[in-house]
Design a protein around this nucleic acid. Structure first.
Lengths: 214, 214
DNA sequence: TCTCAATTTAAACACCCGTTTAAATTAATC
DNA sequence: GATTAATTTAAACGGGTGTTTAAATTGAGA
């Protein structure tokens, strides 16, 4: 090893911030490396390509979040299947907020990256996540399904993606929404407050009975 | 007037399709004009810039959707304030599906454009919509508020944006989700079927009682 | 039919992009 | 301290971007 030892980290730190606030394709490697104060070519040296840098940025969060989230779900009252949907979703708050300790604003950065990734990379990221973290994901899906046994699996599939959309879109626009809420209603919410607002909404939507329709 | 009369239309038609499926910044003017079989420079001649083209693409849908949606809400049983949330959201189905008559796949194109716009253009589109269609929007917000009077205005503000996120993220990934649903559950949903799935979810979320919390 | 304005066209402009190269520099190993 | 491998650096490469220009073409109106 040689040189300043943390070039990789400097790149990741600068990249995640820029990716989260302007999206992947709107963020050039030149912008990243200038913010990180490293040479342009070092991205390709350390990560191979921009696409792999994007994956590395996401993996750094997913590697922390996924295992702790799954274990939080598992030890819900030592019996996840008897937990309410609100409890299950709420069990994700702590793992999410702990990302703030990893890095300042880590929680919202992670959720914004997730949203950007799902929308910008047409299915590419979806594949990456399900193949790398499928085990942890199904822990979550099983707990939710057990808690809402009246929802058929196919319907649950859709509703969990509705839920993903809700949280991810909200966080992507969180700053703008917070500004409006502050000027229109005098409200000032941090990331945790927004998460606590959205959980009852999602839990109610996931559990609402399926009607056969007229 | 001179030349082929429908150059503007050819550009708009090609642009909306490409914008919806790959996003604004990922779609070059050269790709648009080659699909539209018009000259590259005609975009700047007719629209001024790419940014104004994006706005024109969106306005063409909003100009149709917003007035009919607002009038559908207004004539809900001749008394919108006594309609259920499900009825109010469902009143948007017809205006949405009529976009399919304007152009093939118009409904999903519109919703995808909306989502792309909200996420890619950091607040820029939000401003455009609220200033140009604010009247129609508040018709909708008032009907929803009257139907869920137990939700304070500030909370309703957040929940309606949760709702926007739900529908818009879902439609942006609709094709991918439909593929998975087809292979995993043998389901085949068209745009209308997905909209009908998402409405109960959103209605339940918007109306769920606010808890003061521990 | 001639005139003139609207439109279309091909070409160029100036700039930004991700990636590669080869030399310079740095740190570790013997 | 010499050797070697890892890293950093400046520069260039090839290509794509939105936009502008000026000439060519088109279609009405007089």
């Amino acid at each position: 090893m040689a040189g300043r030892t943390d070039t990789k980290t400097r790149i990741l730190d600068a990249a995640e911030k820029l990716f989260a606030e302007r999206g992947f394709s709107e963020t050039s490697l030149r912008l990243i490396t200038s913010k990180a104060e490293v040479n342009l070519a070092s991205v390709n040296y350390h990560f191979g390509s921009k696409k792999e840098l994007i994956r590395a940025v996401l993996a750094r969060y997913l590697d922390v979040f996924m295992p702790t989230a799954a274990s939080e779900i598992k030890r819900l009252h030592l019996a996840p299947e008897h937990a309410s949907l609100n409890e299950i979703f709420s069990a994700l708050i702590k793992p999410l907020l702990e990302l703030n300790k990893v890095r300042n604003g880590g929680t919202i950065i992670f959720l914004q990256l997730l949203g950007r990734g799902y929308i910008e990379s047409q299915g590419h990221l979806r594949w990456f996540i399900t193949t790398h973290y499928g085990q942890h994901l199904s822990t979550f899906v099983q707990a939710v399904s057990a808690s809402a046994p009246h929802i058929p699996p196919a319907e649950m599939f859709w509703r969990l993606h509705f839920t993903l959309g809700t949280i991810v879109f909200t966080m992507a626009s969180a700053d703008a929404l917070n500004e409006i809420a502050a000027s229109d209603y005098g409200e000032h919410n941090n990331t945790e407050a927004i998460i606590r607002k959205v959980i009852p909404y999602m839990a109610a939507g996931v559990a609402v009975p399926v009607i056969s329709n007229e």
